[in-house]
Lab assay of single mutants.
Amino acid sequence: MGFKLLSKLLVYLTASIMAIASPLAFSVDSSGEYPTVSEIPVGEVRLYQIADGVWSHIATQSFDGAVYPSNGLIVRDGDELLLIDTAWGAKNTAALLAEIEKQIGLPVTRAVSTHFHDDRVGGVDVLRAAGVATYASPSTRRLAEVEGNEIPTHSLEGLSSSGDAVRFGPVELFYPGAAHSTDNLIVYVPSASVLYGGCAIYELSRTSAGNVADADLAEWPTSIERIQQHYPEAQFVIPGHGLPGGLDLLKHTTNVVKAHTNRSVVE
């Protein structure tokens, strides 16, 4: 069995187990497998329904001669939608809004960016022009300005110390501490036991640490421990890039980060 097929099978099995364990909360999309990078042309966006009122959005972007996937989250909030992270750029984010209108038909009224990198804030200006209120932590807003990236308009308070959590509509926002970046936030959907790890969490097929220019490698494993301790009931975990899975993604990420750190020390 090929690795790609095995990865998709694991996603399907995880979703099936969740649907059985929580039949009222989960209505997993039966329309197909989780979209992969090879299936999404740059400039297009796919939506994948995880649970009743919960979707991931998947886009792709060219970077350094390669094409990478990027995940975000959409959560229903009454007759409105909360968006977590842009679709990595203005063109993708405009396509995301169009796809949401086509498939869901509810307005996106608020959006949260989970850290300051372009795959999370690139497209904020498109959201703002569409009347979406954009939010991020003060740290993310400051770092985005320093980096020359787009800056969300509103500040999220109460997320300055490791372990801080605040309720934001249908989700809980959690600051686990520094990891992929010093400002990275985690998003949890309690009604569906869905954990969105953003770039602080890796997919299972990833074996290298990737972009760690703004990471705190020493603190990252401790931050992941905080996530595990705060959300032990999480059933569906979405990484910032690639295929979702279960809580095993947290341990896998820790292993990859520690291996990278150990290699760096040896070198």
Rank of each mutant, 00 (worst) to 15 (best):
L143G: 12
G240I: 04
V37P: 08
V212Y: 05
L24P: 10
Q228R: 11
Q49R: 13
A94I: 07
S162E: 10
T253V: 00
S31F: 09
P138D: 13
L6K: 05
T114M: 03
Q61L: 09
S208E: 10
I100G: 01
D183T: 00
G210E: 10
Q229W: 14
L81K: 00
A98E: 13
G105K: 15
Y48L: 09
L127H: 02
V187Y: 00
G246K: 08
V212W: 04
T182Q: 07
D183V: 01
G89D: 05
N255S: 10
H180S: 00
H117S: 00
V75E: 02
I100V: 12
A179T: 04
A129H: 15
L106D: 14
G53N: 07
N262I: 06
S139T: 14
S7H: 11
I186H: 04
S38L: 14
A95F: 15
P176S: 04
P176Q: 01
V67T: 07
L96C: 04
G131Y: 06
F3R: 04
I20T: 12
K4D: 11
L159E: 02
D216I: 14
D164N: 14
N71F: 00
A218C: 09
S160G: 13
L10E: 09
L173T: 02
V265Y: 15
T86M: 02
F63D: 09
D79V: 13
I74S: 03
P41S: 08
F3M: 06
V266F: 15
Q103S: 14
E147N: 08
E150H: 05
E219T: 13
G245I: 01
P23W: 13
A192M: 11
G210H: 04
I238Q: 03
R76A: 13
L173M: 07
V112T: 03
V194Y: 01
S208Q: 10
E225F: 15
A136T: 04
V54H: 01
K4A: 04
E80L: 11
A25L: 08
G2M: 14
P190I: 04
L5D: 11
E225N: 04
C199N: 01
V67K: 15
E33V: 07
L47R: 02
G2I: 05
K4W: 09
G53L: 11
G123K: 03
E172R: 04
L156A: 04
P239K: 01
S191L: 09
Y34P: 13
R141C: 10
S137W: 08
E267G: 14
S31T: 12
Y231D: 01
A144M: 09
I20Y: 15
H154V: 14
E39N: 08
N262L: 07
E225Q: 10
W55A: 01
N262E: 08
A200N: 00
S56W: 09
R46I: 15
V256K: 04
P41I: 11
T109F: 08
V37R: 09
Y34D: 14
G158I: 06
T222M: 07
H154P: 04
W55I: 03
L24S: 08
D64Y: 15
I104E: 00
K8H: 14
F168E: 02
P170Q: 06
T182D: 07
K8V: 09
P107L: 08
V45K: 02
E267C: 03
R46Y: 15
L96H: 01
H57Q: 12
R226F: 13
W220M: 02
W220F: 14
T253D: 00
L249R: 01
L5T: 05
A94P: 03
V11Q: 11
N71S: 07
A129M: 15
Y48E: 09
I238H: 02
Q61K: 13
H117E: 00
T261C: 12
Y196E: 01
H241Y: 03
F236A: 12
P244F: 05
V121F: 02
V108R: 02
P23G: 12
Y188V: 05
A136P: 03
F3N: 08
G163V: 08
D214N: 08
G163F: 07
G158H: 15
H154Y: 05
L24G: 08
T93E: 00
S27V: 07
L10D: 06
A218F: 12
E172M: 14
V124T: 06
S223R: 03
S161R: 14
T140C: 04
P152L: 04
A51G: 11
S7I: 11
I84L: 13
A192Q: 07
E145Y: 15
S30W: 13
L204H: 14
T261S: 13
H252R: 04
L243S: 07
E233H: 11
H115K: 00
I58A: 10
E99G: 13
G53S: 10
T207Y: 10
A21L: 10
I84Y: 00
F3T: 10
F116Q: 03
A213D: 14
S16V: 09
G89P: 03
A15I: 15
A15V: 10
V54R: 02
D52A: 08
A130W: 09
Q61Y: 10
F168R: 02
L250G: 01
T109H: 11
D248E: 08
V124H: 09
L81C: 05
L195H: 02
D64C: 04
F116G: 05
V187M: 04
T207V: 09
I224A: 05
V194T: 06
T153V: 11
S193T: 08
L81Y: 01
H154L: 06
S113K: 04
L217Q: 06
V11L: 10
G78S: 09
Y12L: 07
T93K: 00
G43P: 06
D119T: 01
L5M: 05
S191N: 05
E219R: 10
T14M: 11
P221F: 10
V266S: 14
D118S: 07
A87L: 03
L96P: 02
P23R: 10
S160Q: 14
D214V: 10
I50A: 13
N184V: 02
Q228L: 15
V189S: 04
I186W: 01
A90Y: 07
G246D: 07
L47G: 02
L143W: 14
L185A: 02
W220R: 02
V124Y: 03
I17S: 05
V112E: 03
V265W: 09
D248S: 11
P221A: 08
A192H: 07
D79T: 14
V37H: 06
D77G: 12
T109Q: 14
L5V: 06
E203T: 15
D79Q: 12
A87V: 01
S31H: 09
I74C: 04
Q49L: 12
T134N: 03
K91G: 13
A133D: 14
H57M: 01
E101S: 12
L127D: 02
V112H: 04
G32Y: 14
T153D: 06
L96S: 02
S56R: 11
L143N: 11
L10S: 09
S139D: 14
Y34S: 15
S223H: 00
G2K: 10
T93R: 00
H154C: 05
Q235N: 05
R128M: 13
K102P: 05
L24R: 12
I20A: 13
L159G: 02
D119I: 01
E147K: 12
V146S: 12
G169Y: 04
V146K: 08
E203A: 08
F168M: 15
V194K: 01
L47A: 05
H252V: 04
Y12P: 04
G210N: 15
N211G: 08
A200M: 06
D216M: 12
S181K: 01
H117L: 00
R110C: 04
I17D: 05
P107G: 13
R141T: 07
H115P: 01
I20D: 07
E80T: 14
R263W: 06
Y175T: 02
A144W: 03
D79L: 15
